[in-house]
Amino acid sequence: MSDVLDVHLFASVFITLFVIMDPPGTVPIFLGLTSAMSRVQRNRAARQAVAVAFGVVVAFALFGQSLLSYMHVSLPALQASGGLLLLLVAMELLTGKMEEPQPSGNTNVNVALVPLGTPLLAGPGAIVATMVFVTQSDGSAADWVAIALGVLAVHVCLYLAMRFANVIHRVLGESGTILVTRIAGLLLAAIAVQLVADAVEAFIKAA
């Protein structure tokens, strides 16, 4: 079995990414970002967000180190930029701007892609963690299968959490959803500030 799948590595990848990407914690933020959508639109947004997140994580796992080196971009810089973008989204959730009807010129904006798919789900933490697992692996087929299955399993959990957010929405109602949206904005702001703080600390240590 170890020749086909490294169970220990699979467990490490799954637990690490599950904690970082936090499927249960995405539910209130997902409800806030999709509060103006219908049930069908919310389900489609869940599929799109997970697909985007999976594509970004896989792409960085395969080509991330080479891409960042070519562009002379450090991992702390990537982390800081993701934190700043999440902070902007948090401000919109806290002020209710996310719930306002979008102007006609912004009808093509899809929150499932940005900021939900990335950098919220496929954020700097998930990207860096996946790149580290790939770098530390010995390149065997068992390691690649373990990493791939670990990443896939976490994204399945993310989809299930957002897919059944509709049930939570029906239970909470409109007022409850608005309350959860404000709380999600506060939590997201804290996450964003922590990302920036960690990036600054990394910059200082590297100096």
Rank of each mutant, 00 (worst) to 15 (best):
L88V: 08
L172E: 11
D138G: 15
A199Q: 00
G150D: 07
K205L: 08
I29A: 14
T95L: 00
D22F: 02
T107E: 09
M91C: 02
L62Q: 10
V128R: 12
R170N: 13
V180A: 15
L5T: 11
E99G: 03
A61N: 11
T130L: 00
V134I: 12
S35A: 15
V73S: 10
G176Q: 07
E100R: 12
M162L: 00
G139A: 08
A45K: 12
I15G: 06
P23T: 03
A148I: 01
L149T: 10
T135L: 07
A90D: 01
G32I: 00
G105T: 11
L121T: 03
G105Y: 06
D143C: 06
A51Y: 01
K97T: 05
G185I: 06
T26E: 02
T95A: 04
L120W: 01
N166V: 12
V114Y: 06
L9N: 07
G55H: 05
A192M: 04
L121E: 06
F30Y: 11
G150S: 12
M37D: 14
E99A: 14
H155P: 01
A197T: 09
M131N: 11
V52L: 12
A90I: 05
V57Q: 09
F18L: 11
A199W: 00
A61G: 15
T181R: 11
Q194L: 04
A112T: 05
V128F: 13
A122G: 04
N110T: 03
S12W: 09
V180D: 05
Q48I: 08
V180N: 07
R170Y: 05
L87G: 13
M131L: 07
P101E: 08
H8E: 14
V134H: 11
A153P: 02
V196F: 07
L84V: 15
V180M: 15
S140A: 14
P103W: 03
T107R: 14
S35I: 14
L188W: 00
L186P: 05
A59M: 11
D143Q: 13
T34G: 13
Q65S: 15
S74G: 08
G96W: 07
A90C: 08
F203I: 12
A11R: 14
N108V: 02
E99H: 14
I20W: 01
V19K: 11
G25V: 03
F60G: 08
A202V: 02
V114N: 09
L86V: 09
V156W: 04
D22Y: 01
V52T: 14
L85S: 10
T181S: 15
K205S: 14
L75H: 09
Q194E: 12
V56C: 06
T16Q: 01
P24N: 12
C157D: 09
A153V: 06
L17Q: 09
I29D: 01
Q65M: 08
K97G: 14
D198V: 01
G139S: 04
A53V: 01
P23A: 01
P28A: 04
L187C: 14
A61H: 07
S175G: 12
V13N: 12
P115G: 13
L68N: 13
A199M: 03
D143P: 00
L121H: 03
A192H: 09
V114C: 13
A51P: 03
G64D: 02
R39S: 13
I29F: 00
V171P: 02
T95I: 00
V171H: 10
I29L: 10
G123Q: 03
V154R: 06
